[in-house]
Design a protein around this nucleic acid. Structure first.
Length: 188
DNA sequence: CTCTCGATGTTCT
DNA sequence: GAACATCGAGAGG
């Protein structure tokens, strides 16, 4: 069962923490590839200078302004797709970036697509998109339908085992936003 | 292992 | 024209 829209319609930091331990699933022609979410980052609204919504609504970031429970997928560095899950009520632009998953099913297909193995399959935001064949066609995709791409409950993660740090790759943001502890990982 | 650097195309100034 | 929520190859230790 896919997570309900109510799961996403909450404060982004709460959703980012709660997504740890959930299972991200990609189904294509009956074949399933999935992984357990182990690293996330929160991007919260127009006041967050690291968030794409900081400079207002554009064609690229419009999905973040829409209802929660949809995918915000964008293309960057001329090479890579990144997957975000839209949070908070419609009109509040915010999302959680999925930075890493632990491969769970469909490993053979992931290895073939990535031309890598082991940790290198899905330990980065662009790597997991490649392993799960997520591209810009999924921008705006409704994750609550339970088809093609969705998230399911899997295992509870104790707050004790969650580590938080500053976000990665946002050197362009203001100091306060650069230092915010809005990256969450499962402490191995 | 660490560090540096180039790739590549869309978006925004 | 610059910047970019990254990755992987290659060089060096």
């Amino acid at each position: 069962m896919p997570l309900h829209r109510k799961f996403y319609n909450r404060p982004t930091l709460t959703v980012a923490r709660d997504l740890l331990g959930k299972r991200l699933i990609r189904q294509i022609d009956g074949a399933e590839r999935s992984g357990i979410i182990v690293e996330t980052e929160a991007y919260i609204g127009i006041k967050d200078s690291a968030c794409h919504a900081h400079r207002g609504k554009t064609l690229r970031n419009a999905v973040m302004f829409g209802p929660p429970g949809h995918a915000y997928v964008y293309f960057t560095y001329g090479l890579h797709y990144l997957l975000n899950l839209v949070t908070e009520e419609e009109g509040q632009p915010a999302a959680v970036l999925i930075r890493a998953i632990e491969p769970f099913t469909g490993l053979d297909e992931m290895r073939a697509l990535r031309r890598r193995h082991g940790k290198e399959l899905t330990n980065g935001p662009a790597k997991l998109c490649q392993a799960l064949s997520i591209n810009k066609d999924f921008n705006g995709w409704d994750l609550t339908q339970g088809i093609h791409l969705w998230v399911e409950d899997f295992q509870a993660v104790q707050s004790k085992s969650i580590l938080s740090t500053p976000r990665i790759g946002i050197g362009y943001a203001q100091k306060l936003d650069r230092e915010a502890l809005w990256r969450f990982l499962i402490h191995s």
